[in-house]
Amino acid sequence: MAHEETVYDALDHAHGGEGQWAFGTGFDDPLAGVDTTVPEGVDPADLGAYCLMLGDDALVLCQRLTEWATRAPELEEEVAIANCGLDLLGQARLLLARAGSCGVLGRSREHATDSIPDEDALAYFRDPDEFVNHHLAEADGGDFAQTMVRLLVASTARLALVAHLRGSRDPVLSAIAAKGVPELTYHRDHAARWVLRLGDGTEESHRRAQAGVDAVWPLTADLFTATDVERRLVEQGVAVDPADTRDEVRDVLTMVVERATLTVPDWPADRPSPGRAGEHTDELAPLLATLQGLAREHPAATW
């Protein structure tokens, strides 16, 4: 009897092995074998708060990118945007789980039942004022040009930070950073290529790309001023001071934007990030309402 007679046998026999799976059938745990004890002298509340900052940036930007699903310009772009979204989501999950394990759960546990894991309690049961992402992540995506400019800026800044974070004294942050570097390198490369094509493409795409740059640039004001939590963790060798990444980030962005035949706007003056303090634009609340609605309707459910 032909192998196709039973569906699963046919699949096993069709090519053998597991090599045909897009991602393999097993998933490597990036934290396997990593010591999860909070390093000596580090306040778990600080470490958790820091993880939340980096986790929220990733989670909120993932949600914005996912808005493109089924609406992207090309099928190749559906695949690419989903890749970026999945990478950011993976980073967010690890970071939120780390925040939870450090006991940083905010008010989320007042609403989420015990069966809900920390990463979901934090993602689904915090209110907007407890989110600590930069405004850069939450800003409405605009058209495809603005989406790619934002992705370029966000991935450039995050890559610069995460590359240094590989040397963190916290082994968990260091492992998450090591996983993130190749991912963010791809995001930056993908976004940069689009900014080049759009900037140096047609008259319309040039106009849109410039509008995207002009809209996103002011949001870079928030990226380079450390919070008190970050300052303490920098001293302890756990965190990276975002101010130390400023030159690298600006150099990369300037190079790409100029190569794209676009005008680099004046850099805004640095300011403490309102987002890191829980102060957000009106764009975050509806984003979170969509993200959280179903989970909150069924607080006792497991999925």
Partner: peptide, 16 residues
Amino acid sequence: LKAPSLRRKAVLLAKV
């Protein structure tokens, strides 16, 4: 955008 857990969101995004 509405998947009720982060794990389900990852699974669904990979599937789509």
